[in-house]
Amino acid sequence: MMNYSTHTSAIRPAAWWQFVQCQWLNLLRMPAYSLPTLLFPVMFYAFFGLVMIRGQAHYLLATFATFGIMGAALFSFGVGIATERAQGWFTLLRATPAPLAGVVAGKWFGAALFAAIIVVMMEVLAAVFGGVRMQPGQWFGLVGVLVAGTLPFCLLGLGLGLLMSPNAAPAVINILYLPLGFLSGLWIPVAQLPEWMQSLAEWLPPYHLARLALHVAGVKPADVFVHVLVLAGFSLAFSLLVIVGWRRVRQSP
């Protein structure tokens, strides 16, 4: 029998940390994911928020940042899980004592890191080129609320990733991502959308996260409790999707 390593205790924290670290490394080393996820929303903000639409840099910082973190969460989970399932990585992990919560947490930390980078990059652009001025707490608060706000989108991505093939996942997520962003008023302020679109926006999760972001950034006060409650409701609904997907995976690994 092989020699045993001396680091035999506290395997859970070690495993959790390893999953977080490996998830970050894997995403950072994957230019096909990291470059579009980081640059696409930031370029959108630079183009629309700073160049095309004048005088709205502060408002659009909050909404385009919401758009950016939504992409990081949906693609990291949706495409990531669907691909890993097809590769057999997911099945291999299930055959080990890996804490499934650790696997998901590792993925969430990966998405959260990307979300934080996206928001910070936009904040730098907003401050330098858009003349946006906020209190230190608001700069950090915007990052915090949007990183926390990845939760419902991570759950939606996880559910889709468990249910779809790796070929279908990117297409379906793109079909969801872009219309969700537009209809929730993330590209153009909601007030400038036709009335029926404004009513529709209230039924979409990015709209409610954007309201919270606008509130934290000091652009537009919002009823925080209501928006948090709606996002919690969406998270619960997407959790049901995750349960359905998980049951399907368990029947046929």
Binding site: M2, N3, Y4, S5, H7, T8, I11, A14, A15, W17, Q18, F19, C22, L25, N26, R29, M30, E84, Q87, G88, W89, T91, L92, A95, T96, P97, A98
Partner: peptide
């Protein structure tokens, strides 16, 4: 397993360390 893949962008050592962290008596 027959159909087994791991995360493509992790190195041999990183993968072995990741798996070692899962077990109570890992090999060196």
């Amino acid at each position: 397993l027959q159909i087994s893949g791991v995360q493509d962008n992790l190195t041999v050592l990183e993968l072995i360390r990741l798996f070692a962290s899962l077990y109570p008596r890992p090999a060196v």
